[in-house]
Simulated scan of single mutants.
Amino acid sequence: MDLPVVEVHKHGVWLLAKNVDQYIHRILVEEDAKSPDDTDKVLYGASSEAGKKLYRKGDFAESQIANLDSYLLKKVGLFPDVLERKVMRHFDDGDPVSALVTGEFYTKKGLFPGFGRPYVFNAKILLRVGRISEAKDAARVALKSPWWTLGCAYQEVADIAQWEDEQIEYIREKVTEEGRQEDLKKGKEPVQVALDEAAFLLDLASIEGSWDECLERVAECYKEAGLLEIAKFILYGD
């Protein structure tokens, strides 16, 4: 299974690429576009044979594609930041219909599974054009994803969704010992209870960016679920 490449921010992670090859391909294209001649090709040289399999130097210039973002979308893959820039360019060009169509495409099922960011961005552009009810619905869909995948502070999305603090309080109750025991009494498997607690703790940490405070307990939850390598990775330090 391909592992996504992400960048860590205060309130969670930002998806850089769906997999490592796609990320390397992108940065090689960006380097080539920035320096069309053979100077400053540090990344291309470092990537060795692996890089040559992904990208041939000079292909961006030879393609005659209008701009770098268009090349990336056509030749490399779909990237959240590139799609978001495409939407904003449509707005800048006075074409809100194309902006909305692209925003809707961004949320297409299967493009970025598990990430709430596409729905957050779509909610914001719907709000921009005055479609408040649809923006609220999109924000609520986003909040069904892990909150650390929203690409922004939780409260920004909660405000669009018109959510109060009930959901936060519900999750806080779930991570208490009483909440765990209640789930077990209802017949939920101990492994699932542990995994749910880890997910809830990460959601809560994303609100304030308080990741360090929950690391040990999250790792313990994964140990309880039998995922020892993940627990070890979480606690790994430089």
Rank of each mutant, 00 (worst) to 15 (best):
A199P: 02
E220D: 11
R140F: 11
L100A: 02
Y154F: 13
F60V: 07
Y170C: 03
P36E: 03
D38L: 12
P118Y: 03
L235P: 05
T102G: 00
E213P: 02
D81K: 10
G77R: 06
S98F: 00
N122I: 02
A142T: 10
T176K: 10
L72P: 05
L204D: 03
T176C: 09
Y222N: 01
I125K: 00
Y222M: 03
S35R: 12
E178S: 08
P4T: 02
E156P: 09
K174C: 10
V82M: 09
A205F: 09
F115L: 08
L184Q: 03
K188T: 13
H9G: 13
V193H: 03
P190K: 08
E169V: 05
L150Q: 06
S63R: 01
S35Y: 15
V8I: 14
Y222A: 01
A123W: 00
E30C: 14
S48R: 15
A46T: 04
D238Y: 11
L15I: 14
K144D: 14
E31M: 13
V193W: 06
L3Y: 12
A153E: 11
A50I: 12
M88F: 06
F115C: 05
G116T: 10
Y119C: 03
K34C: 07
K232Y: 03
Q192M: 12
F121P: 00
E62N: 15
F112R: 07
P96T: 02
L195W: 07
E189I: 10
D40Q: 12
R140T: 12
K223P: 01
D93F: 01
A225Y: 01
E208N: 13
S47Q: 08
G110N: 04
I171L: 15
A66I: 05
L127E: 07
E224L: 05
L150F: 08
S70I: 01
S63D: 04
E31Y: 12
E134D: 15
R56A: 13
R85A: 10
A194P: 04
D38H: 07
V6D: 01
K57W: 12
L202W: 04
W211R: 06
E84N: 00
F121E: 07
R56F: 09
A153T: 02
Y106F: 15
K57M: 15
H90N: 08
K124R: 12
A138S: 11
A219C: 03
D92Y: 00
A153W: 03
L78S: 10
V120L: 05
F105P: 00
L126H: 04
L73Y: 02
V42C: 13
K41Q: 15
T149D: 07
L54P: 01
K34V: 01
D196R: 10
Q155E: 15
F91V: 00
I24F: 12
D59C: 08
D37W: 04
